[in-house]
Design a protein around this nucleic acid. Structure first.
Lengths: 180, 180
DNA sequence: GATCCCATGTAATCGGTTACATGATTCC
DNA sequence: GGAATCATGTAACCGATTACATGGGATC
């Protein structure tokens, strides 16, 4: 089975959420999908161009008074269909999530246990911050977009983020204890 | 801070575990590190060549009677030092784990809830198989290599795999229930 | 004879990051 | 005046996958 470039569909999807500007797409993904997706401008702008070429979106210059112009992208009917087709399409194989902490820990016998503990501690701190971020996003979804048809689904993905992060934090705690 | 190519160190590390053949390195990673690392022959063979060029390993032809020859790679003192240096080196930023199920779920309002449920169910099945695999690996580490100095660390990484997978399975269950 | 496993390797391609360039506006 | 934010874009590079090529041995 041939692989699909999902980044294209991530952008297609974001365009249905009220985001119409390249710059905003990056922000949206960084702020709301950051626990399961990321993207760079080096992908966004060429992809948007491509979407227009393929007739999945149209561009229009949006002139703002006192602010620089920007390009507004709006999905066409064909673009919306393309999105729905992708949504229906079966899942690909789950890719492996590489993890440097685990890789180093796997070779732990060549390393000071003490240093390994500090690594896991710093990892744990990052996870705790991450968890707080998710709680913040959750609160903002519940307040700002409770009425939105998207809110329900966004909360499902956040729930995932929180659970996995909590499980990781628990592992850190217990593993640190075992290493001491 | 400049990024490090960790694949190189993954191979360096595997060479300390009794694995000396390119083909075996792939097997070892697929069988024991599969919950946090993966690799292809397209990386392994060129990297092994590079390690020898850099004086981190030596090669020797290993002639087997009745079987085709193969190349044995053995770490040099310099190679072992390089591994320990990397182990001491601070962790990089945690990369984002992309997740197609969550991406599709995020755009769930454009999709049939029923179809989404079948997707999550198939995801859950894969996770359950994965969990069983981890239990199998755990059993084999506990029996075969209990005495090995590596065993302790390998069990730590497995514990991580099992916890995260269990958390994911729990999320699948609950999310399916909510979608119905 | 076919198929599977062992074993080594390379070239094309792809997805993605990074660095760089440009320029306007706002805030201190 | 300087920094931060908004905004768009490209080119070089890199890590990794994929497809392909080759060939021996074992099993059915």
């Amino acid at each position: 089975m041939k692989k699909i470039n999902q980044t294209r569909y991530a952008i297609l999807g974001i365009l249905t959420t009220g985001c119409r500007i390249g710059y905003q797409i990056k922000q949206k993904i960084d702020n709301s999908l950051n626990h399961f997706w990321k993207i760079s401008y080096g992908q966004i702008y060429p992809t948007l161009k491509q979407l227009v070429e393929d007739g999945l979106a149209i561009v229009q210059d949006s002139v703002q008074d006192g602010k620089p112009d920007r390009k507004e992208y709006i999905l066409t009917a064909k673009g919306e269909e393309e999105l729905r087709n992708w949504l229906k399409f079966p899942l690909e194989d789950i890719p492996v999530n590489k993890n440097e902490v685990l890789l180093k820990l796997f070779f732990g016998r060549h390393q000071d246990n003490e240093l390994m503990v500090t690594f896991i501690q710093s990892y744990q701190e990052i996870l705790q911050n991450r968890f707080s971020t998710y709680e913040g996003i959750e609160a903002s979804i519940r307040s700002c977009s409770q009425e939105s048809a998207d809110a329900q689904y966004w909360l499902f993905t956040l729930d995932y983020g929180k659970r996995i992060t909590a499980a990781e934090i628990g592992w850190c705690e217990d593993t640190i204890a075992k290493l001491k």
